[in-house]
Design a binder for these strands. Structure first.
Length: 225
DNA sequence: GCGACAG
DNA sequence: ATCTTGTCGC
């Protein structure tokens, strides 16, 4: 498939820019990013919602969103090319100077270590974390199920390299998959995800709120049709 | 041909 | 991701 090869070349080119160390002094504003999709007369549209919260008080600081027609189809491994352009437009509407972004999807846990969170992180040149609700198998490697206790985790090691981890964000609840995006390390990513996860959801608060906002806007757009 | 496949 | 109602359970 010609299109997919273009994406792979672009990912391989970006690969060498990934930063695996913390590049921040303090975290004040954290943004959660999520997209929702719907159709209008057979034309697919996407809504990107970004919700910024205060890392300590967890209060919502700002919400931004951007809707656009979809131009790129979804191909496993190439998700970022579909979602990053729309995310960047929504991000332009943000007034808050965000310290860290959390994406709904993988970062380093990707065939070329270039998932959504990493791709966006390199463009933003800011710290990002990828949090996926489902496992995206790389090189036929399975993950080890962590203990059913909040905070338990197992690193996902592929060919001797740590791609990310499976983290139990809530006791007795299906685990999530955490990986670095850019300008951050995995240990810190895990700590932050745990800090932002409570009994309301197994997903960290910023992305959970972004998910709710994106779907709220989608339902409104669908009833207007 | 069959199954897998972040969102 | 989305199409979709009720339903079992804390």
């Amino acid at each position: 498939m010609a299109i997919k090869n273009e994406f792979i070349k672009a990912q391989l080119d970006m690969q060498k820019q990934i930063c695996l160390t913390n590049q921040f002094n303090a975290i004040k504003y954290v943004a959660g990013v999520d997209l929702a999709y719907y159709n209008v007369d057979g034309t697919e549209h996407a809504i990107c919602a970004i919700v910024v919260i205060d890392y300590e008080t967890k209060e919502v600081v700002e919400i931004a969103s951007y809707t656009a027609q979809t131009t790129v189809l979804y191909i496993p491994g190439c998700l970022s090319f579909r979602e990053v352009p729309i995310f960047l437009k929504a991000n332009e509407l943000l007034n808050t100077k965000v310290d860290l972004y959390i994406f709904d999807g993988n970062g380093y846990l990707h065939p070329r270590n270039m998932g959504l969170a990493t791709h966006a992180g390199i463009i933003l040149d800011l710290p990002t974390i990828g949090v996926a609700k489902n496992y995206f198998k790389v090189q036929d490697t399975d993950y080890i199920m962590p203990a059913p206790i909040k905070g338990a985790y197992e690193n996902i090691i592929i060919n001797g390299k740590v791609y990310g981890c499976v983290l139990r964000s809530r006791t007795n609840v299906k685990p999530i998959f955490v990986s670095i995006g850019n300008n951050i390390d995995l240990q810190t990513s895990r700590d932050i995800v745990i800090h932002l996860t409570s009994k309301e959801s197994r997903i960290p608060l910023p992305t959970r709120l972004a998910d709710i906002e994106a779907n709220r806007l989608r339902k409104i757009a669908q009833t207007i049709k």
